[in-house]
């Protein structure tokens, strides 16, 4: 028994690494190929203007090292990342770490506000019959409004009231966050078996005793699944909220100034930082999820879709 268990665990680790590396390699290959495809028309045009004879390898090399490329190649983005992360002081306005920090702070504040609002709404929906009937349609409608249309209005209105910076941006994040949390939490709070609800009923437990002792722990797996979606959405919200501020700070503003000045390297570097940050946040929630769910299963290993 023991040896079987151990060998399974040993097998699992390389089993994860190889597919991941394969996918990364494939993406990089496709990326290089795409860079040739997208950049070569301009390069060829340049060759023709100067009537230079060219070879395929020269074309590839020039496409991969072109300035202001349509699609910068991976190593150009890597150089840009090094330049903006390692070489710059993190307090510098040109450091991506500085901008990522700005975005992260409004992502996290928005996430906390959104998750809180989602949980409160869910509790209201589960416990108050009128809210159950009246609130859900509004919550769903709220999500049909495109965030890109809403974000500038919120930023402008708050700006007119003299409120700028973190709070209005977090509100956009919150707006994207609360929805998955509310929906997941409603489902989770309603997930206990009828038998367990009957059991607490035979003790004439109060609603809050049922909430703390049964509904909330039962909801945890649903809540965490929603939180993973929510934190990724929160980052998107934070970046979108940084676009209409006119490029002051945050990853969103870097994306915007990159596109103003045709600095595609900068756009891609900022995108990669955003993606890494998003993956990091989602896995952080995943780690907490595994800890909590394991505890709630009485220490038994539980498998959830990661």
């Amino acid at each position: 028994m023991m040896t079987a268990k151990v060998s399974i665990q040993v097998q699992r680790k390389p089993g994860n690494v190889i597919p991941v590396l394969t996918v990364v390699m494939a993406i990089i290959l496709v990326w290089y190929a795409g860079a040739i495809y997208l950049n070569s028309p301009q390069i060829i045009e340049r060759y023709e203007k100067k009537s230079i004879d060219w070879t395929v390898s020269q074309l590839a090399s020039d496409s991969w090292n072109m300035k202001r490329a349509v699609l910068p190649s991976p190593h150009q983005v890597a150089v840009e990342l090094k330049k903006t992360i390692v070489d710059k002081n993190i307090t510098s306005k040109r450091s991506l770490v500085y901008h990522a920090g700005i975005t992260l702070s409004s992502t996290l504040l928005g996430f906390v506000l959104g998750a809180g609002l989602g949980v409160i709404l869910a509790v209201g929906i589960v416990y108050v019959e009128t809210l159950d009937k009246s609130l859900m349609p509004w919550i769903i409608t709220s999500q049909t409004i495109p965030i890109l249309a809403l974000a500038p209005m919120v930023i402008v209105v708050f700006g007119a009231l003299g409120i700028t910076g973190l709070l209005p941006k977090s509100l956009i994040s919150m707006y994207l966050c609360f929805f998955p949390v509310a929906v997941g939490m409603v489902k989770g709070l309603r997930s206990p078996q009828p038998m367990l609800l009957d059991l607490l009923n035979t003790y004439s437990a109060s609603r809050w005793q049922v909430f703390w002792r049964l509904r909330l722990p039962s909801a945890a797996p649903f809540l965490f699944a929603s939180l993973k979606v929510a934190i990724a959405a929160s980052l998107v919200g934070a970046i979108v909220a940084e676009l209409p501020t006119g490029g002051q700070s945050g990853l969103g503003s870097r994306l915007l100034s990159g596109s103003y000045y045709g600095q595609t390297n900068l756009i891609w570097a900022a995108l990669i930082v955003a993606a890494v940050m998003s993956a990091g946040l989602v896995s952080l929630v995943g780690v907490i999820e595994r800890k909590v769910c394991r505890r709630l299963a009485g220490g038994q290993e539980v498998s959830h879709g990661h």
Partner: peptide, 21 residues
């Protein structure tokens, strides 16, 4: 009688909470 907790009830399944010892 339920409010006065006059009875105990054993269900078809154990109905134990998995997160409690």
């Amino acid at each position: 009688a339920r409010k006065e907790r006059a009875y105990g009830y054993v269900f078809q399944a154990p109905a134990l909470l998995p997160w409690r010892t």
